[in-house]
Protein backbone atom coordinates (compact mmCIF):
# COMPACT_ATOMS: atom_id res chain seq x y z
CA UNK A 1 0.00 0.00 0.00
CA UNK A 2 2.82 2.32 0.95
CA UNK A 3 4.44 1.80 -2.42
CA UNK A 4 1.13 2.71 -4.09
CA UNK A 5 0.86 5.95 -2.21
CA UNK A 6 4.53 6.83 -2.48
CA UNK A 7 5.65 5.18 -5.71
CA UNK A 8 8.97 6.99 -6.09
CA UNK A 9 10.48 6.49 -2.65
CA UNK A 10 13.78 4.65 -2.43
CA UNK A 11 14.68 4.07 1.22
CA UNK A 12 18.45 3.83 0.63
CA UNK A 13 18.49 7.21 -1.10
CA UNK A 14 16.63 8.77 1.79
CA UNK A 15 19.05 7.35 4.32
CA UNK A 16 21.96 8.67 2.28
CA UNK A 17 20.38 12.13 1.96
CA UNK A 18 19.49 12.29 5.66
CA UNK A 19 23.03 11.29 6.57
CA UNK A 20 24.42 14.06 4.36
CA UNK A 21 22.13 16.62 5.95
CA UNK A 22 23.22 15.56 9.44
CA UNK A 23 26.84 15.57 8.36
CA UNK A 24 26.68 19.09 6.95
CA UNK A 25 24.65 20.42 9.88
CA UNK A 26 26.82 19.00 12.62
CA UNK A 27 30.23 19.84 11.13
CA UNK A 28 29.02 23.34 10.22
CA UNK A 29 27.53 23.72 13.71
CA UNK A 30 30.85 22.94 15.37
CA UNK A 31 32.64 25.44 13.13
CA UNK A 32 29.92 28.03 13.70
CA UNK A 33 30.07 27.53 17.46
CA UNK A 34 33.82 28.14 17.61
CA UNK A 35 33.95 31.06 15.16
CA UNK A 36 30.72 32.60 16.47
CA UNK A 37 31.96 32.40 20.04
CA UNK A 38 35.17 34.17 19.02
CA UNK A 39 33.28 36.86 17.12
CA UNK A 40 30.79 37.35 19.96
CA UNK A 41 33.53 37.55 22.59
CA UNK A 42 35.49 40.06 20.51
CA UNK A 43 32.37 42.15 19.92
CA UNK A 44 31.59 42.10 23.65
CA UNK A 45 35.11 42.70 24.95
CA UNK A 46 35.99 45.52 22.54
CA UNK A 47 32.74 47.41 23.04
CA UNK A 48 32.67 50.72 24.90
CA UNK A 49 33.39 50.05 28.56
CA UNK A 50 34.54 46.50 27.78
CA UNK A 51 37.71 44.87 29.08
CA UNK A 52 39.53 45.36 25.76
CA UNK A 53 37.70 48.51 24.76
CA UNK A 54 38.81 49.25 21.18
CA UNK A 55 36.62 51.36 18.95
CA UNK A 56 38.37 50.48 15.69
CA UNK A 57 38.49 46.71 16.21
CA UNK A 58 34.88 46.72 17.36
CA UNK A 59 33.83 48.65 14.26
CA UNK A 60 35.72 46.28 11.94
CA UNK A 61 34.24 43.13 13.46
CA UNK A 62 30.76 44.60 13.63
CA UNK A 63 30.97 45.58 9.97
CA UNK A 64 32.16 42.13 8.86
CA UNK A 65 29.39 40.51 10.90
CA UNK A 66 26.74 42.81 9.50
CA UNK A 67 27.87 42.42 5.90
CA UNK A 68 27.87 38.64 6.01
CA UNK A 69 24.52 38.58 7.75
CA UNK A 70 23.08 40.90 5.12
CA UNK A 71 23.98 38.72 2.13
CA UNK A 72 21.21 36.21 1.35
CA UNK A 73 22.57 32.73 1.87
CA UNK A 74 21.96 31.46 -1.65
CA UNK A 75 23.99 34.37 -3.02
CA UNK A 76 26.70 33.87 -0.40
CA UNK A 77 27.27 30.33 -1.67
CA UNK A 78 27.70 31.61 -5.22
CA UNK A 79 30.05 34.36 -4.03
CA UNK A 80 32.13 31.84 -2.15
CA UNK A 81 32.54 29.41 -5.08
CA UNK A 82 36.17 30.44 -5.83
CA UNK A 83 37.05 30.31 -2.14
CA UNK A 84 35.40 26.91 -1.72
CA UNK A 85 37.11 25.57 -4.81
CA UNK A 86 40.47 26.72 -3.44
CA UNK A 87 39.81 25.29 0.02
CA UNK A 88 38.04 22.00 -0.73
CA UNK A 89 39.07 21.42 -4.35
CA UNK A 90 35.50 21.08 -5.59
CA UNK A 91 32.24 22.99 -5.51
CA UNK A 92 29.97 19.96 -5.29
CA UNK A 93 29.04 17.64 -2.42
CA UNK A 94 28.51 18.09 1.32
CA UNK A 95 32.10 19.14 2.09
CA UNK A 96 31.93 21.95 -0.43
CA UNK A 97 28.90 23.35 1.40
CA UNK A 98 30.75 23.67 4.72
CA UNK A 99 32.67 26.95 4.16
CA UNK A 100 29.52 28.74 3.05
CA UNK A 101 27.45 27.25 5.87
CA UNK A 102 29.98 28.32 8.51
CA UNK A 103 30.56 31.78 7.03
CA UNK A 104 26.82 32.27 6.72
CA UNK A 105 25.92 31.11 10.24
CA UNK A 106 28.88 32.25 12.36
CA UNK A 107 28.14 36.01 12.19
CA UNK A 108 24.54 35.28 13.15
CA UNK A 109 25.64 33.20 16.12
CA UNK A 110 28.28 35.83 16.96
CA UNK A 111 25.52 38.39 17.52
CA UNK A 112 23.61 35.94 19.69
CA UNK A 113 26.78 35.32 21.72
CA UNK A 114 27.25 39.05 22.16
CA UNK A 115 23.68 39.42 23.43
CA UNK A 116 24.16 36.46 25.79
CA UNK A 117 27.34 37.97 27.24
CA UNK A 118 25.65 41.33 27.77
CA UNK A 119 23.11 39.58 29.96
CA UNK A 120 25.83 38.47 32.39
CA UNK A 121 25.54 40.44 35.63
CA UNK A 122 28.16 43.20 35.53
CA UNK A 123 28.46 42.95 39.29
CA UNK A 124 29.75 39.40 38.99
CA UNK A 125 32.44 40.46 36.53
CA UNK A 126 33.32 43.28 38.89
CA UNK A 127 33.52 40.86 41.82
CA UNK A 128 35.95 38.70 39.84
CA UNK A 129 38.05 41.78 39.06
CA UNK A 130 38.05 42.72 42.74
CA UNK A 131 39.39 39.23 43.50
CA UNK A 132 42.31 39.87 41.16
CA UNK A 133 41.14 37.73 38.23
CA UNK A 134 42.96 37.84 34.90
CA UNK A 135 40.99 38.56 31.74
CA UNK A 136 41.29 34.92 30.66
CA UNK A 137 39.85 33.85 34.03
CA UNK A 138 37.00 36.30 33.62
CA UNK A 139 36.24 34.91 30.16
CA UNK A 140 36.47 31.21 30.93
CA UNK A 141 35.27 31.12 34.54
CA UNK A 142 32.75 33.95 34.63
CA UNK A 143 31.48 35.13 31.25
CA UNK A 144 31.11 31.78 29.48
CA UNK A 145 29.71 29.68 32.38
CA UNK A 146 27.33 32.47 33.44
CA UNK A 147 25.95 32.86 29.91
CA UNK A 148 25.89 29.13 29.08
CA UNK A 149 22.09 28.64 28.92
CA UNK A 150 21.79 31.59 26.51
CA UNK A 151 24.76 30.33 24.48
CA UNK A 152 23.04 26.95 24.18
CA UNK A 153 19.67 28.38 23.18
CA UNK A 154 21.55 30.54 20.69
CA UNK A 155 23.31 27.58 19.11
CA UNK A 156 19.95 25.77 18.95
CA UNK A 157 18.41 28.62 16.97
CA UNK A 158 21.51 28.71 14.78
CA UNK A 159 21.36 24.94 14.22
CA UNK A 160 17.82 25.24 12.93
CA UNK A 161 18.82 28.06 10.60
CA UNK A 162 21.71 25.87 9.45
CA UNK A 163 19.38 22.99 8.59
CA UNK A 164 17.52 25.43 6.37
CA UNK A 165 20.80 26.56 4.82
CA UNK A 166 21.83 22.96 4.03
CA UNK A 167 18.61 22.51 2.08
CA UNK A 168 19.34 25.68 0.13
CA UNK A 169 22.91 24.58 -0.49
CA UNK A 170 21.47 21.24 -1.61
CA UNK A 171 19.53 22.96 -4.35
CA UNK A 172 22.80 23.96 -5.99
CA UNK A 173 24.49 20.63 -5.64
CA UNK A 174 25.63 20.15 -2.05
CA UNK A 175 23.74 16.91 -1.47
CA UNK A 176 21.50 16.10 1.48
CA UNK A 177 17.72 16.22 1.78
CA UNK A 178 17.40 19.60 0.06
CA UNK A 179 19.25 18.32 -2.95
CA UNK A 180 17.21 15.12 -3.03
CA UNK A 181 13.92 16.98 -2.76
CA UNK A 182 14.87 19.34 -5.57
CA UNK A 183 16.50 17.04 -8.09
CA UNK A 184 14.77 13.72 -7.48
CA UNK A 185 11.49 15.21 -6.34
CA UNK A 186 10.59 18.60 -7.77
CA UNK A 187 12.34 18.35 -11.14
CA UNK A 188 10.85 14.92 -11.88
CA UNK A 189 7.42 15.97 -10.60
CA UNK A 190 7.66 13.25 -7.94
CA UNK A 191 6.02 15.23 -5.18
CA UNK A 192 5.92 12.32 -2.75
CA UNK A 193 9.71 12.66 -2.52
CA UNK A 194 9.38 16.38 -1.71
CA UNK A 195 6.80 15.58 0.95
CA UNK A 196 8.86 12.92 2.69
CA UNK A 197 11.98 15.13 2.59
CA UNK A 198 10.01 17.91 4.24
CA UNK A 199 8.74 15.60 6.95
CA UNK A 200 12.25 14.33 7.71
CA UNK A 201 13.63 17.88 7.86
CA UNK A 202 10.86 18.94 10.25
CA UNK A 203 11.72 15.95 12.45
CA UNK A 204 15.41 16.90 12.46
CA UNK A 205 14.50 20.47 13.44
CA UNK A 206 12.32 19.20 16.29
CA UNK A 207 15.11 16.92 17.46
CA UNK A 208 17.63 19.78 17.61
CA UNK A 209 15.14 22.03 19.36
CA UNK A 210 14.36 19.37 21.94
CA UNK A 211 18.02 18.64 22.69
CA UNK A 212 18.85 22.37 22.89
CA UNK A 213 15.96 23.14 25.24
CA UNK A 214 16.80 20.20 27.46
CA UNK A 215 20.51 21.06 27.81
CA UNK A 216 19.80 24.75 28.32
CA UNK A 217 17.27 23.98 31.06
CA UNK A 218 19.62 21.52 32.78
CA UNK A 219 22.43 24.07 32.90
CA UNK A 220 20.32 26.92 34.20
CA UNK A 221 20.62 27.04 38.00
CA UNK A 222 19.04 30.47 38.37
Amino acid sequence: MLTNLLPNIKVEDFIEATYETFYMTIIALVGTFIIGLLLGLLLFLTQKGGIWQNKLLNLVIATVVNVFRAIPFIILILLLFPFTNFLIGTIRGPNAALPALIIGAAPFYGRLVEIALREVDKGVVEAAKAMGAKTSTIIFKVLLPESMPALISGITVTAIALIGYTAMAGAIGAGGLGSYAYYSGFQRRDFDVVLICSIIIVCIVFLFQFIGDYVSRKLDKR
Binding site: D121, G123, V124, E126, A127, K129, A130, M131, G132, A133, K134, V142, P145, E146, M148, L219, K221, R222
Partner: peptide, 22 residues
Protein backbone atom coordinates in the same frame (compact mmCIF):
# COMPACT_ATOMS: atom_id res chain seq x y z
CA UNK B 1 50.83 43.91 40.82
CA UNK B 2 47.34 45.29 41.28
CA UNK B 3 45.85 41.84 40.68
CA UNK B 4 48.05 40.38 43.41
CA UNK B 5 47.20 43.16 45.86
CA UNK B 6 43.50 42.74 45.11
CA UNK B 7 43.76 39.15 46.29
CA UNK B 8 44.57 40.63 49.71
CA UNK B 9 41.58 42.95 49.75
CA UNK B 10 38.21 41.28 50.28
CA UNK B 11 35.10 42.93 48.95
CA UNK B 12 31.45 42.40 49.85
CA UNK B 13 28.71 43.80 47.60
CA UNK B 14 25.18 45.04 48.13
CA UNK B 15 23.76 42.62 45.58
CA UNK B 16 26.10 39.77 46.59
CA UNK B 17 27.40 39.28 43.04
CA UNK B 18 27.66 35.51 43.35
CA UNK B 19 28.06 33.27 40.30
CA UNK B 20 24.70 31.56 39.86
CA UNK B 21 26.37 28.78 37.88
CA UNK B 22 28.48 27.70 40.85
Amino acid sequence: ELRLVRQDIGMVFQHFNLLWSR
